[in-house]
Amino acid sequence: MEMVESKHKWKAWIYLSPAIILLLIFTVWPIINTVRMAFLENYSGLKAIGGATFKFGIGNFQKVVKYQKFLQCLKNTVLLCVITVPVSTVLALLIAVCLNSIKFLQKPLQTIFFLPYVTNSIAIGMVFAAMFNIVGSFYGTENEIVVTAGIINNIIEFFGGKRVNWINTGSSYLANMTVMVVYIVWNALPFKILILLGGLQSINKQYYDAARVDGTSRRRIFTRITVPLLSPMIAYVVITGFIGGFKEYTSIVGIFGEKMGPADDAGRLNTMVGFIYDALSTNNQGRASAAALILFGIILVVTLINMQVSKKRVHY
């Protein structure tokens, strides 16, 4: 066995080389380079080409943290994560359980719930923006023509509520965040439902028969049997949900456009990834790299906490 191994080792390396070379160029080197740039103060790609040298230090990190916008971005990112991941997970679980317990229309409904997953998120964002958007003079000048307050406001008004300025000029942070939460949750549901429904369908039906013979209430069946048996899937969607949540960016662009906020307060809803993007577009690769490392650190810590919790709560 050993002889065979040594004889063909070089062959194995040759077979692996295309993948390894691509990974080295496009994954490993960028990671190393990111770390390098983060610790070179005021690093900029253009200046580097011009022959400038940069001092080694943690100046980039200090700058990032001091930056007024950074804290806003961090706050937005964390808030969106902390709200949307639990909400979407619980909703997805409820929908999956309901879907699993019906026979009639199960397949069509499954397809409908999965559709958002295959839809472009910018397109979804634009539709959501239209739903919440106010077109006309509600908040503009008096000469503008009133067109619509958006379908959501129409519904609110139908039930006797007052319309809300969701995303336009003069809208509040709370209103903006509400729209974002609704949109992100809705966007996150299909994948979670798919995973959880798959998990539910793989649970042995005999557990439920056994529970029925023992006279277990529906609630207890859900909390003591379904959820524990589904816990690996739940852990999976929560962990990937947090990781995805910290990388939130396109959804904001989808609703608010590149300004990342209402017209009168650009950047109000900017996120960590948006911050990195801004730094890159102004040729501050050093600052962008430092911010990326900070984001990496946060995701790492959150994932470690997640995994620690799941060690106790997840039953494989």
Partner: peptide
């Protein structure tokens, strides 16, 4: 009557023990 109201105990062929308990 439903199973729980009959007062029966059932042992399944593959036991159906709750694996997480």
């Amino acid at each position: 009557l439903t199973p729980e109201n009959r007062g029966v105990g059932l042992v399944f062929q593959n036991y159906a023990l709750y694996p997480h308990l």
